[in-house]
């Protein structure tokens, strides 16, 4: 029946939260922003902001500590990477060529595709010019005029 007694991921952690760190304020907006750029690192594969397990709690704790120690956003990322490796970042940091490719390639792809389309359309449009059809001649026009009424009536039937 002990379910109600405690359900904390680590009792200690909550104690420390309640007594010390939690009492002091950190910039919540900045905290959330940083949290949103990190992953939980225990292999659960979850986004830190979405995760609620022990590791995630501890990481949030670390985050708050660094913030209170006066670290900047970039320093905290560097700190996190130094502990957990690049994997901790929820998106590849733009610090080396390959990672920059990750960000740029989709847009390059669209740009390239756009070029291809432009060139193709250009060719097609050029191809079409001079092939514009002519106005009907007088004989044609007369015949059409004769059928005008019937044509309109029939069209309504199917419209």
């Amino acid at each position: 029946m002990g379910k109600l007694k405690t359900w904390t991921v680590t009792a200690l952690l909550v104690l420390s939260l309640a007594s010390g760190v939690w009492a002091q304020q950190v910039d919540e907006a900045l905290f959330k922003k940083i949290e949103a750029n990190l992953m939980c690192t225990d292999g659960c594969g979850m986004y830190l902001a979405a995760c609620d397990n022990t590791t995630a709690q501890r990481m949030r704790q670390q985050l708050r500590e660094r913030l209170l120690a006066g670290d900047t956003e970039q320093q905290i990322y560097a700190y996190m990477i130094s502990i957990y490796g690049e994997e901790v970042m929820a998106a590849p940091p733009k610090t080396n060529f390959l990672n920059i490719t990750a960000w740029v390639l989709p847009f390059l792809g669209i740009l390239g595709g756009g070029m291809v389309i432009y060139i193709a359309v250009d060719k097609w449009v050029f191809h079409r010019q001079g092939r514009r059809a002519e106005k009907p001649d007088a004989e044609d026009a007369a015949e059409l005029a004769a059928y005008e009424e019937i044509l309109n009536a029939e069209m309504k039937k199917y419209f």
Partner: peptide, 14 residues
Amino acid sequence: QLRNQYRRHAVEVL
């Protein structure tokens, strides 16, 4: 252009 083209066509069918 399209209208004339299809009208001519329609007349033929009629």
